[in-house]
Design a binder for these strands. Structure first.
Lengths: 190, 190
DNA sequence: CTAGTGAGTGAGTGCATACTCACAAAATCG
DNA sequence: CGATTTTGTGAGTATGCACTCACTCACTAG
């Protein structure tokens, strides 16, 4: 384990590479999921050989799991940071969370990754990772906000709706039904 | 096209077979989706040869599309029927829809099929079928109920949450977070 | 009966793809 | 410097799977 190395380096460390791979893997895997994405596509997108991809992640499933975990971590960290900021500034945490939320749903890859994870939940390891991710997320929201159980449920429900909005590309559909489903307004007119 | 045939028949008509196949296909396809489900599995589950499966559905994608359409049709018809019944009995349509809803979410295969459809939405034909299904569903709900746009949005959002609850099997998880997410209560205590 | 049609299959074919291995070159260590 | 570790690859292999083809058999019309 090289620790005291010179900063000039043309090769990456494996850890760095893994991180790079995961970032681009979220794009590729988000489209077609665990079963539909050839490892070759991931390798190509990451700019490495397929052989080396398999050295970084010994199995396709493990790569997929890492993608999912990264996806959850991103959501989690974003919320925690927003809440911490709000608290430090003396602003309402609810608002901050709301803002973090609208930031996150801009990230199409993130939403698609979530969806693909759920679709592969028949794989026990994947299901376990998803349950764990949701549990952590849930408890964080419960801890950081004053929201009631019903509100939290609605919060997550809305998140799931965002996933399918991303998958169907409803943002670009200019029809009444699509606009109602995608609308983010809090006001309710009769 | 045999129309005036005797009712004793050991072979099925192709139409009948197709329907049979779709019914069992919802089970199989719901687990692993378009890319993850070998056609052989569907054929075996339906009790026919793979060769004949391909005569009934010329391509795997077309089979998948048929599954999705069937899935949407089931949801649609259930709601329409419930609404019609309620109206005939002079009962509130909202309640009837709510009841139809809780009936539908008992059908795990149906929910999983929906989720798998969404996960395969990068396939243009699939995406088109999903958009069409949602549009039809949306307009039906809008027509049959008095719900506000926000309510309709929440209605669909909750449907999406049900899909992932089914996928993760949260009904069987006896932990606080899972219970809150799966709870169907309308009452909100402080 | 015979001829024709539609249900149904066994046994492939060819290609995609998860995973491996033998090897090269760069970095680091002593 | 040479020895060792670590990043990285080209060229496989073996299996799984979508789709095909040449058939057989059940049924019906005439």
């Amino acid at each position: 384990m090289p620790v005291s190395s010179t900063p000039t380096r043309t090769l990456s460390t494996a850890e760095q590479r893994r991180e790079d791979v995961l970032r681009v893997a979220m794009k590729v895997v988000g489209e077609r999921g665990l079963y539909g994405t050839p490892t070759m596509d991931v390798a190509r997108a990451a700019g490495i050989s397929q052989a080396y991809l398999f050295r970084l992640f010994p199995t396709k499933t493990e790569l997929f799991l890492a993608v999912i975990e990264r996806s959850f971590r991103r959501v989690h960290d974003t919320f925690v940071e927003a809440a911490a900021n709000a608290r430090r500034e003396g602003e309402p945490v609810e608002k901050a969370i709301g803002q973090a939320y609208t930031d996150l749903i801009q990230d199409r890859d993130l939403l698609l990754t979530q969806l693909q994870g759920q679709a592969a939940a028949s794989e026990p390891e994947v299901r376990a990772a998803l349950r764990d991710g949701f549990k952590t997320l849930f408890e964080m929201v419960e801890r950081e906000t004053e929201a009631t159980p019903l509100e939290i449920q609605q919060f997550f429900a809305r998140g799931m709706l965002c996933n399918v909005i991303a998958a169907l590309g409803l943002d670009d559909v200019e029809e009444h039904w699509a606009e109602v489903l995608t609308s983010a307004d809090a006001d309710e007119d009769c």
